[in-house]
Design a protein around this nucleic acid. Structure first.
Lengths: 223, 223
DNA sequence: TCCCGTTTCAAACAATAGTTTAAATCGTTT
DNA sequence: AAACGATTTAAACTATTGTTTGAAACGGGA
């Protein structure tokens, strides 16, 4: 059977992988189809032939690299029954390992970084889906850790203090002047750095929790 | 006197300000000279006439907005004699206030965000100067807070955990799906949020310090 | 071998954006 | 008012880039 795609050349896949590499390296605008096709060893017309246009290729890269990152370092690894602390540890660990993955699974973190500062309008749907999932997952963990009396600002505070470093760690330039990806940013390995980042965040969250307790106690006492 | 520039039209200044707004909004690539000149109420050729080319205009915008941000919320406000805690408080506060400044002084934070993910090669010098100053200033504070036995990784940890949120707070998209600048991200005012971010960071750093003490004590005991 | 759909390719095309140019305008000085 | 330099303007120019096109090459059935 499979009448049509008999010798199914792997050009399509090659283009996708090259695009993932290029886009994660220099972003959508500077990632020209000429360069992508060159790195894929294909003709310039390959992008349009297989993916219609550049925007659609970018969409496919987004979905593809997201899947790769999730498969390599899934965010939901700690089950629902685990303690909030362990769930946060697993959460931070996954993001950091994704960021430092030197292979294709590491592309997604850098693409997300581009999308945070310079969101592509045509990717709104896909981006929103992923980001909302990420934020919701984290918010659930933070809510469980801080306790019932958590306010909206408390959650935003946690989000900015935990997510910004966890995502930003894969960003260029945080290793001061790393040329490209800062894999040599830490002397210790990513696993250990993830654990240390988790502990830093944990201390902040526990401090927040106790300050909320004080705030509530004072509020009840004064009322 | 002033033979040449007698009626010195303010077009040059208008273009600079429009460029600052546009570049901080959509970045270098999407910030076309056409749009900049339109917003400045000037002719398309104004950029080249007054600034030579687009790259040079961007450079001027970088320096100009940096100066504005520094004048509005100077980073060195706490003197050398202040306690490390107070210096960190002032440091975080300045960055957060810069990020949330709704006027021209707020542009720089967003331009820096673009430069972190997508650094322009031709800006290397200027960018390095600013970033190195920022990193060095923070490193000095962190070193004083954590103590003598601080390692390189300790400092990188602090940098990523404190700088990423302080810079990232001005980034789009951290307010989940804010259309553009997330000034409505917090319910409380920037001053209070800065204080809370400082306290969160402080807890993390103090935890780090005590864990280093334990590490050293164990090391000496075991040796 | 011939046919036919698929894939590859080089060239042409169209759109965008930065830059240049030369003429026109304006304000000041003489 | 004439003259001069500085500024503004519209149009042309150039380079880049995404896309389209039509022909050529390929590979497996009939």
């Amino acid at each position: 059977m499979k009448t049509a795609v008999t010798h199914s050349s792997d050009t399509k896949q090659k283009v996708l992988e090259a695009a993932a590499k290029v886009f994660s390296d220099v972003g959508y605008h500077e990632g020209t189809v000429a360069r992508i096709c060159e790195e894929a060893g294909a003709n310039r017309a390959a992008v349009n032939y297989y993916y219609g246009d550049k925007e659609n290729l970018y969409r496919e890269v987004w979905n593809h690299t997201y899947r790769l990152a999730q498969e390599a370092h899934p965010l939901q690894s700690a089950g629902e029954e685990a303690s909030p602390e362990d769930r946060l540890r697993a959460f931070v660990r996954s993001l950091v390992l994704q960021a430092f993955d030197a292979g294709p699974a590491g592309h997604f973190t850098r693409i997300i970084a581009f999308e945070m500062t310079d969101p592509m309008e045509f990717l709104r749907e896909e981006r929103t889906r992923v980001l909302e999932g990420l934020f919701d997952l984290f918010t659930g963990i933070a809510r469980d850790m801080v306790g019932r009396a958590v306010s909206r600002d408390d959650l935003v505070l946690c989000r900015i203090m935990v997510l910004a470093p966890s995502l930003g760690v894969g960003m260029r330039r945080f290793g001061c002047h790393a040329k490209r990806v800062p894999h040599e940013m830490f002397e210790s390995d990513p696993e250990e750095m993830a654990e240390r980042m988790f502990r830093f965040a944990l201390a902040g969250i526990e401090d927040l929790r106790s300050s909320i307790r004080r705030r509530d106690a004072a509020g009840e006492g004064g009322a």
